[in-house]
Design a protein around this nucleic acid. Structure first.
Length: 808
RNA sequence: GCCGCCGUGGUGAAACCGGCAGACACGCAGGACUUAGAAUCCUGUACCGAAAGGCGUAUCGGUUCGAAUCCGAUCGGCGGCACCA
């Protein structure tokens, strides 16, 4: 077949028939299959795109043939830094380069032949989209979920913008790997922490990879403990968070983070110099060093003291940078006997170490950080672990000095970016009224085209006078726009909702549209989004639900991560490794169907692995064999009343076995085994076809099923064969074959015959035989008798259809 | 350090709930057809052994009639979190 021609032919016909569109009028059950949309980088699709979109499209086509009304939209995550950096380098405007890239990618995606519903296409950089991204911001603001505050934030000196916590990997920028630095800035945040508990609990019921759920749990980082108030001699109260309040009688000092607001207030005049020096010193140390566990602990005494609420003991207050300002309360109670960090610190600075926990039934070596028996703790002595913590927490609550408290590692999501190519934050800063949201009727706040790109740490918009100039919506006075844009992850946090109603100009989506299509049934994309996009999108869904715009809690019922196709050398494909493999030459040579089929067959979908084209020829050959076989069988004259003997039964078994397995494997995204089962069926048909006497109707029916089974894997190829063999309409209008359970029951099966769990031979046994019959027949076999040697059978284990084991 | 996942032929990989390890392919070897073969078809292919047979799923041990699969320890790899109190 001339695949190039055939691809074009069928793509044009599908297009003309609007065949790939979601059918609004159908009463079939809906199935929303979604691949993560792409950033329009470079120009061409790379293997990763193919690997994500090809097999998933096969899944979508399979669901369609199974009778679902499938919705498979596509679009572009079009805002973002690369386009802007490219503009700084080349002078080509981000809008122009992005639009050009999108045009190329659209063309390539169409050429792939996936069943995308292009009528719902979205581009996040279009006004018609980002207007609603801004609208989302305003709703969150109204709900108190968007707020502005000054805080220490992560700044990427290379990208010249702040980053969210999730975008800092090992102290480096997720995008460009530059070391981030800490800055104090006033920025916009989304209050994702308000949903911490629900985001955590919701994971339990999701059909997601366990690993991804574990990563989100880890990221949310719930820890259950206790908050305790230590009163200073100045009257100030220091609140500390601890998970080990059973050790509270062992507190010998309290430590504040150097940034803690009370530091300045409580430091005694004598210690001011030392404390000031220490703060300056630690602020110079970058985040990476500061977070290193191996670094020696340092700190300095403030000169102040506070009181342990449970025993009235006076303990010194230190500052040390091993206490983080951003976690818990930014202060800890130090129990050197039962915490390794406190132990190291106390040893270094000669602070007392008081043992209050003992190992149950053993020697207690300090620091002892496990649970144990409470000692030296007045009336709590003798309690153990959780019981002790609970009792002490209750006691603290009774004293009015604290109580049980849950802490999360998750921080609020910083969404401001000091960059141009994003959705402008719809806020006006008025000298009188402060930060005022732009009224919804004034949306969108348009991104001006004529800007200059000078990476200087400020948004290019800040220098655009016309853009910046605004009138305060509240008082009508002179005001300034917020010069920052929204993190692109804000755009991608709701795009799956927009697809459902992509052309709505009154609302981001109508309730009716999302009710009909959402949630997404199967979402497919890379695992690298585990703690970013996938967490943010869940947050958006829950927030929108609480605002009454949605009626469901979770956007993605089922999640599948495709693996990563690495370069042939086993490294990630990259320009710097010089190991990028382009799909184009393969597609050119073998066609898009063969290429996607190879991707499905050659890799375990969720694993991926190093690229190798070993076997791509075999796939092309396989398609050739199918073509020859089907065209040949199709020409056989009809013959009625042909015999149905054991050969026919075998062929029919192979046919129905393939139907059963292929359907099962496709549902499980186990494409490699599904293709293997198809190859087995082809082998079985070939074998049968080589016989002298054949049952032609059966052979034809089997060949037809093969074609239908293969259709989702090789859509153009099968569409063409369907037509050539006289099929009416599109092959994808046919139902996917369903297995005949009766054909899967064989008269007899081959059993492995074991004596004392060792395989002795194989033999055929009639199915439905009783255990006694099987035992008797097994015993009668010559190989078995040689082993048994007349010994009595003590036990006989039968696994129906598989194995019989005689224990003698 | 903590959490999670993984380790199977020369290669990519299979194996549902504990039941014939290596499906399906690639590669390789041999053969057929052929002027020719990089085409097509057939046969073989975990390893050791000529064979009978033995042995085998990172290593060691355990549970079981039976373990790639379950349990414990060790080694190796990957991913996440990490001075988180």
């Amino acid at each position: 077949m001339d695949m190039k021609e055939i691809e074009k032919k069928w793509q044009a016909r599908w297009e003309k028939a609007k065949f790939n569109r979601f059918n609004e009028k159908s009463d079939k059950p809906k199935c929303y299959v979604l691949e993560m949309f792409s950033y329009p980088s470079g120009a061409k699709l790379h293997i990763g795109h193919w690997y994500n979109y090809g097999p998933t499209d096969s899944y979508a086509r399979f669901k369609r043939m199974q009778g679902y009304n499938v919705f498979q939209p596509i679009g572009f995550d079009a805002f973002g830094l690369p386009a802007e950096n490219y503009a700084i380098k080349t002078g080509i405007h981000p809008k122009d380069s992005t639009e050009k890239n999108i045009a190329t990618m659209e063309q390539q995606l169409r050429a792939m032949g996936a069943m995308f519903d292009w009528s719902a296409e979205i581009k996040t950089c279009d006004e018609s989209y980002y207007k609603w991204t801004q609208w989302m911001f305003l709703q969150l603001y109204k709900r108190g979920l968007a707020y502005r505050k000054e805080a220490p934030v992560n700044w990427c000196p290379s990208c010249q913008t702040v980053l969210a916590n999730e975008q800092v990997v090992d102290g480096r920028c997720e995008r460009c790997s530059t070391q981030v630095v800490r800055k104090h800035l006033t920025q916009w945040f989304f209050k994702i922490t308000e949903y911490a508990e629900e985001l955590l609990n919701g994971l339990d019921d999701l059909d997601w990879p366990e690993k991804t759920k574990a990563m989100q749990r880890n990221w949310i980082g719930k820890s259950v403990g206790c908050e305790v108030e230590f009163e200073c001699e100045t009257g100030d109260k220091i609140r500390v968070f601890t998970t080990r309040c059973d050790t509270i009688y062992g507190v010998t000092y309290v430590v504040l983070a150097p940034e803690h607001p009370l530091v300045a207030k409580i430091t005694t005049p004598g210690q001011q110099q030392a404390v000031g020096d220490y703060i300056v010193e630690t602020s110079k140390i970058n985040e990476i060093e500061r977070l290193s566990t191996t670094r020696e602990k340092t700190g300095v005494f403030t000169g102040a003291y506070c009181t342990n609420p449970v025993n009235g003991k006076r303990v010194p207050i230190y500052i040390a940078d091993y206490v983080l300002a951003t976690y818990g309360t930014g202060a800890v109670m130090a129990v050197p006997a039962h915490d390794e960090r406190d132990f190291a610190f106390a040893t270094k600075y000669g602070l007392p170490i008081v043992k209050v926990i003992e190992r149950q039934g053993g020697q207690t070596e300090l620091p002892f950080t496990e649970d144990g028996i409470v000692v030296n703790s007045l009336n709590f002595d003798g309690l153990v672990g959780e019981e002790a913590r609970s009792e002490i927490a209750n006691y603290l609550a009774k004293l009015g000095k604290g109580g049980k408290k849950v802490n999360y590692r998750l921080r609020d999501w910083l969404v401001s970016r000091q960059r141009y190519w994003g959705a402008p934050i719809p806020v006006i800063h008025c000298p009188v009224c402060g930060a005022v949201p732009v009224p919804e009727k004034d949306l969108p706040v348009r991104l001006p085209y004529d800007v200059e790109f000078h990476p200087d740490g400020k948004s290019p918009l800040a220098k655009h006078e016309k853009f910046m100039h605004a009138v305060c919506p509240k008082c009508g006075g002179e005001a300034q726009r917020d010069p920052d844009t929204l993190d692109t992850f804000v755009c991608s946090s709701w795009y799956y909702l927009r697809y459902a109603d992509a052309h709505n100009d009154k609302l981001p989506f109508s309730r009716e549209a999302v009710d009909r299509l959402l949630p997404v049934d199967t979402y497919v994309g890379g695992a690298e989004h585990a703690c970013m996009h996938l967490l943010y999108a869940r947050f958006f869904t829950k927030a929108l639900r609480d605002m009454g715009y949605l009626d469901f809690d979770e956007p993605f019922r089922r999640l599948v991560h495709q693996g990563v196709i690495l370069g042939p050398d086993g490294n990630r494909m990259s320009k710097s490794h010089g190991n990028i493999v382009s799909p184009d030459e393969y597609v050119q040579e073998y066609g898009s169907d063969a290429f996607r089929l190879y991707l499905m067959f050659g890799f375990s979908y969720t694993e991926g692995g190093p690229w190798s084209d070993d076997g791509i020829k075999a796939i092309a050959k396989f398609l050739d064999r199918v073509e020859k076989l089907i065209l040949k069988i199709c020409q056989y004259p009809e013959e009625e009343g042909a015999a149905f003997g054991s050969e026919e039964k075998q062929l029919n078994y192979a046919r129905n076995y393939a139907i059963q397995r292929v359907s099962h494997d496709l549902e499980a995204f186990s494409f490699n085994t599904a293709v293997a089962r198809l190859m087995e069926l082809v082998n079985a048909i070939n074998k049968y076809d080589a016989l002298d006497r054949r049952n032609i109707p059966l052979l034809k029916a089997t060949a037809k099923d093969l074609l239908l089974l293969l259709a989702p894997f090789a859509p153009h190829f099968c569409e063409e064969l369907w037509q050539q063999t006289g099929g009416k309409g599109f092959v994808f209008e046919q139902s996917y074959p369903k297995e005949d359970a009766a054909a899967l029951v064989l008269d007899e099966s081959e059993y492995a015959v074991q004596v004392n769990s060792k395989i002795v031979c194989r033999a055929m046994f009639a199915n439905g035989s009783s255990r006694e019959e099987i035992q008797a027949r097994a015993l009668s076999l010559a190989e078995v008798q040689a082993r048994v040697n007349g010994s009595p059978v003590k036990k006989c284990i039968v696994v129906p259809g598989r194995l019989v084991n005689l224990i003698v």
